[in-house]
Simulated assay, not measured.
Amino acid sequence: MHMDISAVVMSVRVGADNGLVSGKLFPAKFLAQRLRPVYGQAVTMLFDYVRIRFPTLDIGHIIKDILQLNIQYMIHEDFGHYSYTEHYYIGDIFVYTSPDEEKGVLLELKGKGCRQFESYLLAQERSWYDFLMDALVDGGVMKRLDLAINDHTGMLDIPELTEKCRNEECVSVFRSFKSYASGELVKHEEQDKAGMGYTLYIGSLKSEVYFCVYEKSYEQYIKLGIPIEEAPIKNRFEIRLKNERAYYAVRDLLTYYDAERTAFSIINRYVRFVDKEADKKRSDWKLSVRWAWFIGENREPLKLTTKPEPYTLDRTLRWIQRQVDPTLKMLETITAKTGIDYLKEIRKSTKLTEKHYKIIEQQTTSTEDVILEKEN
C-alpha cells in the first residue's frame, strides 16, 4: 500500500462544525498513529560517505589492519585523485597514497563503497563503531562524514521546505540556502546530480557543515527505473560534515553509541522549520507538524542501520546494455543474414589485461576470502 503523507495530512484536517478551528491539524501523535500501520519504520539512517586520512605511508598496514582486507584482491592503479599519485581499490572502496608524508594514506568510501564495506564488516563481525574506533586509535583524521537519514514515508516535502525557506519559516544559523527543481542541473560536484529530483541545500557548500535534502525516489527512478510511488525511500536528508565537524560527530557516536542523538543534535543546532503565526514573534512560532515528527516527536526511535551490498558489476552491465549490446545485436543480425561473423574476428584479437583478470578474481572470490582477521 502506497500513500503520500500530504494526503494523510489533508485527511486529518477538520472543519469548524467538528468543534475545532478550521484548517488546524490534529496533534502529531495522532498523525503518527495514523501513519505507523501504513509505513512501519518511518526513518532509517546510514553512513553515506566516509573519508579518513592516516598519517602514514604504509598503505599495506591500513588495508590489512584497519580495513582488514586482503590486498592481493585489490586493483592497483598508478594514478590517484586529490593530488595523490596512486591507489588501490576493490569495487567502490578506494585507498590513496603518495610519497608525500604530509598526505599520508587516504581512505574514501562513497555511497556504494559504504554499502560494500558493510558486507565486509558483517563478515568480520565488526560494526561501524568498531571500525571508526580502530581508525581513530591508529591516528586517523576525519576529513568528511555524511549521515543519510532516509524518509520512507514522504514526511519531508522538499518544495514545501523550500517555500518555508523563502517565507522566513526556516529558523537557522545558516545564512544561505539553494534549491533546484526536479531534473535541473545541480551546479556542484554530486555523484548523482542529474537524478536527484527536487533538491534543497541548507548552508554553504564550502562550510564544514551543511545539509542536502532531496527526492531519493526520483533518483531511484532515473537510475534503476523503479516507479516513484514504489520507491522504498521517498526523500533523503543528508548531514554533510567536514574536518573538525566530522571528527566531533564521530567522537559523539563513539561516546554514546546513539546515532539518533548525534544526528538530530546536529540538525537541531542549525535549523528548524516552523509555521508562521501573525500575532507572535518569529522566535515563538511553533514547529511545523511534519518537521516535529521528522526530528522525533512521537515516531519510532532512529538507529544506525546497515545495508550490506557485495561488490557487483551492475554499473558495467548497465553500460553494456545501453551502449554496447545494441551494436552486438546488430553484428549478430548481420552474421545471420550474410554469414560474415565480425564478432568472432574481433574476439580473436581481444586480450584481457591484468586489471580484467583481477576483476574476475574479485567477482569469483567469496567475501570470507577477501577479509582478514585482525591480529592481536
Rank of each mutant, 00 (worst) to 15 (best):
N268A: 09
H2C: 14
V141L: 03
V213H: 02
D157W: 03
R272P: 02
R322N: 13
A263I: 01
W293S: 13
I360Q: 13
L69V: 02
T199F: 15
E108H: 12
L122V: 10
D258F: 04
N268V: 12
G113V: 04
L205N: 14
D4G: 13
I5Q: 08
A123S: 14
K307C: 09
Y218Q: 14
V289F: 15
H81Q: 14
E125H: 06
Y257F: 10
K348W: 04
V289P: 06
K329F: 12
E163W: 10
Y73T: 00
F211S: 15
E169W: 15
I239R: 02
Y89D: 13
Q72A: 08
E77H: 08
D4V: 15
T162F: 04
V9M: 12
Y82N: 02
C165K: 00
S172I: 10
R347H: 09
G60C: 04
V173R: 14
S283Y: 06
M330S: 08
M74P: 10
V105A: 02
V105W: 01
Y129I: 07
D78E: 04
I266Y: 02
P301L: 05
H87K: 09
W291D: 08
G139C: 01
Y180R: 10
W319N: 11
F177L: 09
A181Q: 10
I158F: 00
D134E: 01
D314T: 12
L287G: 14
H188E: 12
R115Y: 15
G140I: 01
G225Q: 04
G197N: 07
Y84C: 03
L20G: 03
L67R: 01
L254F: 00
S288E: 11
E368Y: 10
G183I: 00
R13G: 00
S283Q: 07
V9Y: 11
I222H: 12
R315E: 02
I340E: 12
K164W: 04
R144K: 13
G197K: 07
E332H: 05
I149T: 15
